[in-house]
C-alpha cells in the first residue's frame, strides 16, 4: 500500500465514524479507507471516542419484557440452527479490483458499464442519488484527457478508483480523496498511461468556465435534472 497524500479532513472522518455523514460522502470515504492504513487506524480510534461518548450517557433502563423478548428470539435462532442445515450462500465473486462498497452498483467491472459520453475525453455513469438529490457517479477521463476548467456550485467529493490525474494543485492517484467547493476552479488532466476513473459526488452541477464551456452549461444542467 502506497502512502497517500490526500485524505479526508479530520472532522469528515469523525462524522463518518459517528455515522452522521450523508451516505454518498460515506461511500467515497469508504473507498479511500480501503487504500489508506493511516485513516483506517484513525477511524478505529474515532470509534473508540464514540464508544466513550456512548458510555458517558445516562443509562436508560429497558422494561423487563425486552430481555424476555430477546431471549425468545435467541431460542428461536438456536432451534433454527439445530434443525436447518447450514446453507452456504454462493459467494458473490465480484471483481476484486472494485472497492467492496461499490459492489452494490457494479457487478463485474468498469468495462461492462454503459458509459455515457459527455465529451470526447469524458464519460460518466450515474450510480444513484442520495439525500438532497446529490448525484453519485463514476467519471472516466481518457488518458491525457481533460474535463475542462470548471468550478462547482456545491461541494464535490472525489475519490480515485483507477489511474491518476493532476490539476493546478497537485497529483492524485488511486485512493486519493479530495473535496472541491465553489471557490475552487480547477482543470483536471488524466495521466497519459491509462484511463482515470473516479467516484464523484456532486451536490450541484459543475460550472464550466471557459468560453465553450459556458455554452455547455445548460446541457450539463439538463443532464443533472
Amino acid at each position: 500500500m502506497e502512502t497517500l497524500k490526500n485524505h479526508p479532513k479530520d472532522e469528515l472522518l469523525a462524522a463518518y465514524a459517528a455515522g452522521s455523514l450523508p451516505l454518498s460522502q460515506a461511500l467515497c470515504i469508504s473507498v479511500h479507507l480501503e487504500h489508506c492504513t493511516e485513516c483506517t487506524q484513525n477511524l478505529h480510534q474515532l470509534h473508540q471516542l464514540g464508544s466513550e461518548l456512548m458510555l458517558s450517557l445516562q443509562p436508560a433502563k429497558p422494561s423487563p419484557k425486552l430481555k424476555d423478548k430477546l431471549f425468545d428470539q435467541i431460542d428461536q435462532i438456536l432451534i433454527n440452527a439445530a434443525t436447518t442445515e447450514k446453507v452456504t450462500l454462493p459467494t458473490n465473486e465480484a471483481n476484486h479490483s472494485l472497492p467492496r462498497c461499490l459492489h452494490q452498483f457494479i457487478k463485474t467491472g468498469y468495462e461492462d458499464i454503459s458509459w455515457k459520453r459527455l465529451s470526447s475525453d469524458i464519460y460518466s455513469y450515474e450510480l444513484c442519488r442520495d439525500q438532497n438529490n446529490a448525484k453519485v457517479e463514476l467519471l472516466r477521463i481518457k488518458p491525457g484527457g481533460t474535463s475542462g476548467t470548471h468550478t462547482h456550485m456545491g461541494d464535490e467529493y472525489t475519490v480515485i478508483l483507477e489511474g491518476s490525474f493532476s490539476d493546478e494543485s497537485g497529483f492524485y492517484q488511486q485512493g486519493d480523496f479530495l473535496v472541491k467547493n465553489s471557490l475552487d476552479k480547477h482543470t483536471p488532466v488524466a495521466t497519459i498511461d491509462k484511463d482515470c476513473i473516479c467516484l464523484a459526488v456532486t451536490e450541484a452541477p459543475i460550472q464550466l468556465t471557459g468560453f465553450f464551456g459556458r455554452m455547455l452549461n445548460p446541457l450539463i444542467r439538463r443532464s443533472y435534472a
Partner: peptide
C-alpha cells in the same frame, strides 16, 4: 427517514 439509494450495509458492515 433517510432517503437514499445507497445501501449502508456495504459501507459500514464490512468495517
Amino acid at each position: 427517514r433517510y432517503i437514499s439509494d445507497i445501501d449502508p450495509t456495504e459501507i459500514f458492515n464490512n468495517i
